[in-house]
Design a protein around this nucleic acid. Structure first.
Lengths: 140, 140
DNA sequence: TTTACTGCAAATCTTTTGCATCAAC
DNA sequence: GTTGATGCAAAAGATTTGCAGTAAA
């Protein structure tokens, strides 16, 4: 879970090839604290290995997505972002005015989850909820 | 062309020009039941008036967005979608298994909204929330 | 008359794809 | 040796922008 372990193992066991490019991509994703975009992954890798192509990043992300090893989220801003599926839950408050992203504690959503289960018998998957609105600074 | 919509009035009062293109765009948006994309708006208009350009649609949508007259939502699929901000609130519980969409009463979200305001000073825009999960029938 | 708005074309930006080559297994 | 993975370049799809002409107020 810390190093390029979990996802790498999974890929290997499923018979996918462990190329250097893939391992670098996995390493960047797994060591990233926030959701990260394909471009950001690529930039980090290119700093050390300039000839890794961004299409390889996209292809690897698509593979990981298909295997449910990463989660995809759209936080606005024209880019899709990725996150290891086995890492902790991330909730975000996104300011529609200035783009600030505020991390939201999971406890804030617990009551909602309970309500949905109780009143709608619906098991909500609240792992990557993005709530849009307006932050303190952007309220006139 | 009939121009007695809420958004039209608002634009007019704010001093923006009511061009035929704008009115057609507004008409399509206001008469749409679902969230609609820029391309869909354009397609509908072009059927009658072939020389309306899609960049005009985008520019109008940006204006309406800036004035909080339409809400933007990303439902995946590479396109951003739009919806009149003053139309009824849309909350949905979407089952990831069978695709069932359950309408969610607004009251279920009120406590969350309060919490966000109180603890994060964040004014949440919960008009078009989509919560993914698993419905009654798909729980085993 | 004034200048905000439009159409057009070209530019951007993100993501995907075809294809020949290469390397993990 | 197979064949899946990569690099490259080009394509695709959505959205934005520069500019000159047009029309709403």
């Amino acid at each position: 879970m810390n190093q390029s372990g979990y996802i790498t193992d999974k890929l290997s066991k499923l018979g996918y090839r462990l190329t250097p490019q893939r391992m670098m991509i996995l390493s960047v994703i797994e060591n990233s604290d926030n959701h990260i975009s394909a471009e950001e992954i690529h930039t980090q890798i290119v700093a050390k290995y300039p000839n890794v192509n961004i299409s390889t990043v996209y292809r690897t992300l698509e593979l990981l997505k298909r295997l449910s090893l990463v989660t995809e989220i759209n936080l606005g801003g024209g880019q899709v972002r990725y996150h290891p599926a086995n890492k902790g839950h991330h909730h975000h408050l996104i300011c529609q005015e200035c783009g600030t992203i505020i991390d939201l504690d999971e406890s804030a959503l617990a009551p909602l989850k309970d309500t949905l289960l109780r009143e709608y018998k619906f098991i909500a998957d609240l792992r990557h909820l993005a709530i849009f609105g307006r932050c303190v600074n952007c309220q006139r």
